[in-house]
């Protein structure tokens, strides 16, 4: 019971995910700043931003549904945290069962749908536009992402993240066999996190703040926090599926390797957001369905052939 609570609240649950989220965000902002010849924020800036948002007045337009607007970030936050619980951290897996990969992917989709709903219930023109865009984007990246992520599952002959990691300790990291799948997973992850260059739903110059334009105060803080945690969960997931070969390393070494892998992922994400321009939504749909899906299918075909 107490152990369970510890898992839920501290490691690998709430506290750990939030701390990682803040750390990754700081690292990302600092890297981006240095790429752009700026100094960048001090280490406590993400936390300070969060505290500021939590202490601000909570407003909604007249006629908006307060209950749903408050529930949406809470539900998606809990979905993301739950997904985080099932993801092994440096080989440590408190809860794992056959098929948890599917549960994680399902839970990771909840924030996107909630984001769309937040745009609808908060009754702003920009929110509606942003919400519609987030769904369009969802349909563009989700399919190639799911096809790509089923690659490790087929190769590892398991639908649990821990199982896939175990298979990698025997066969070597899957990124070697599925470099294409790894790239597609990163593209999908960027789309899921609505990061630059796939920040179409929240593009400031086009739709102001996207779905969250009318959301303020604690709710906005919660939205930002859950997106940070979503980034952590996504990064951990991709690392475990493609670089998760450290199960049998000594404990301290495996933590070190895991941290280094996380840093590499953050650097990859920062560099992508620094060097690519935002696509138009029709261009993204074209990219998703005409290029990414065929590539993902190619990768799967290759994986199946390898399995045979």
């Amino acid at each position: 019971m107490i152990e369970g609570l510890f898992f839920l609240l501290f490691f690998p649950g709430l506290a750990f995910q939030v701390v990682c989220g803040l750390a990754f965000e700081w690292l990302d902002r600092k890297l981006l700043a240095r790429f752009q010849r700026r100094v960048g924020p001090p280490w406590y800036q993400p936390l300070a931003d969060l505290i500021k948002l939590f202490s601000k007045e909570d407003l909604l337009p007249k006629g908006a549904n307060h209950l749903i607007a408050a529930l949406l970030p809470l539900v998606s936050f809990s979905a993301v945290l739950t997904a985080g619980l099932y993801i092994p951290v440096a080989g440590f897996t408190p809860f794992s069962f056959e098929g948890d990969l599917i549960v994680i992917l399902f839970l990771m989709s909840v924030p996107t749908l909630a984001y769309y709903l937040a745009g609808i219930v908060s009754l702003g023109v920009y929110s509606v536009l942003g919400g519609g865009r987030s769904l369009l984007q969802f349909f563009s990246y989700e399919v190639p992402l799911l096809i790509a992520l089923s690659g490790p599952a087929i190769l590892g002959q398991s639908w649990s993240v821990a199982g896939i990691m175990e298979a990698q300790t025997v066969q070597g990291p899957f990124v070697i066999f599925q470099p294409l799948g790894f790239i597609l997973a990163i593209v999908g992850l960027i789309g899921k996190l609505k990061r630059d260059p796939l920040d179409i739903p929240s593009a400031k110059s086009e739709v102001v703040g996207g779905s969250l334009t009318e959301i303020t105060g604690t709710k906005l803080g919660l939205w930002h926090l859950l997106m940070k945690v979503q980034a952590v969960v996504g990064i951990f997931l991709v690392i475990n599926l493609y670089l998760g070969w450290l199960k049998y390393l000594p404990a301290h070494l495996s933590i070190l390797v895991f941290v280094i892998e996380c840093l590499i992922m953050v650097v990859i994400l920062s560099v992508t957001s620094a060097v690519f321009a935002r696509l138009r939504i029709d261009q993204l749909a074209g990219l998703g369905w005409k290029i990414l899906v065929p590539l993902a299918l190619l990768q799967i075909g290759f994986v199946i052939l390898m399995g045979v």
Partner: peptide, 18 residues
Amino acid sequence: SLLSAIIQAWFDKPETVG
């Protein structure tokens, strides 16, 4: 070239005045 520009910027001193 943009990639090499950001790598260059990474090694340069930041231009912002404190």
